[in-house]
Computed example of a mutant assay.
Amino acid sequence: MGKVIGFELNSQDSEKSVEFYSNVFGWKVAEPRWGYREVDTGGIKGGISQGPHDYPHGTRIQIEVDSIDVAISKAKDYGAMIVRDKMEFDDFYLAYLVDPTGLGIGLIEKK
């Protein structure tokens, strides 16, 4: 299960965001309440909501995964665009992608 530190994702297509994150990372997403869906990632909780037109997309977040290669493959299957493929650093691997609704996220795999 992908873990994050904390977040709120704004999206112009929140249903598509819910489908993407629950299927790719196994997140548990609650039913909508006032246009906001609570999200349990197994780490800090966050939410997915319909972004306002003057700020339609949220800020990129960092998601820790067990296997960056598996996560990238699943993300592509669900419509993600890879911005920067897997990069190697001293203690971790990092990749950047954009989900199917245009939200930027980073993937981190610790060595």
Rank of each mutant, 00 (worst) to 15 (best):
L94A: 04
Y36C: 02
G47H: 01
I63K: 02
A75N: 05
F7P: 04
K16V: 10
Y78H: 15
S22I: 07
D77P: 03
S17M: 14
G26R: 10
Y36T: 07
E88R: 10
E88Y: 08
D77T: 12
G102Y: 05
D66A: 15
W34Q: 15
I63A: 06
E38D: 14
G43M: 05
G106F: 12
E88N: 12
K45W: 08
K74R: 15
Y93E: 00
G102V: 06
F7G: 02
Y21P: 07
K3A: 11
K3S: 09
P32M: 08
K28I: 15
G58T: 01
K86M: 00
K45M: 14
G35H: 03
I61T: 09
D77I: 09
D40Y: 08
R33D: 15
P56A: 07
Y21A: 10
V24T: 04
N10S: 14
V4E: 04
G42Y: 05
H53R: 13
I63L: 15
Y96P: 00
H53I: 12
D90H: 09
I108M: 07
Y21H: 10
D69H: 14
V29S: 02
D77A: 13
T59D: 09
G35W: 03
S49W: 08
E88A: 10
E38M: 14
V65M: 02
P52Y: 01
A75H: 03
I72Y: 08
K76Y: 07
T41R: 04
K86F: 00
S22Y: 10
E15P: 01
G51W: 04
M87A: 08
K111A: 04
R37F: 00
S73Q: 14
V98Y: 01
G42N: 04
S22Q: 13
P100G: 03
D85R: 03
D40M: 05
S67R: 02
P32R: 08
A30L: 07
E64M: 13
D54F: 11
S17Y: 14
M87H: 03
I68V: 08
W34P: 07
N10E: 11
K3M: 08
Y36R: 06
S67Y: 03
S73E: 15
A80V: 09
F7D: 02
G79L: 12
E109H: 00
G79P: 13
G46M: 02
F89G: 00
F92L: 11
D69E: 15
E64A: 14
G2E: 09
D13M: 10
F7R: 08
A71W: 08
V83E: 12
F92V: 03
E88I: 12
F92N: 06
R37I: 01
D91C: 08
G26S: 09
G104C: 04
V29F: 04
R84F: 12
I72H: 08
R60I: 12
K3G: 04
M87W: 02
K76I: 15
E19C: 06
A95L: 01
G46E: 01
V18I: 11
F89E: 06
D66G: 11
R60H: 13
R33H: 13
W34V: 11
F20R: 09
I63T: 10
K3F: 06
G2P: 14
V83G: 05
I105A: 05
S67T: 03
R37H: 04
I48T: 01
G42F: 05
D69A: 15
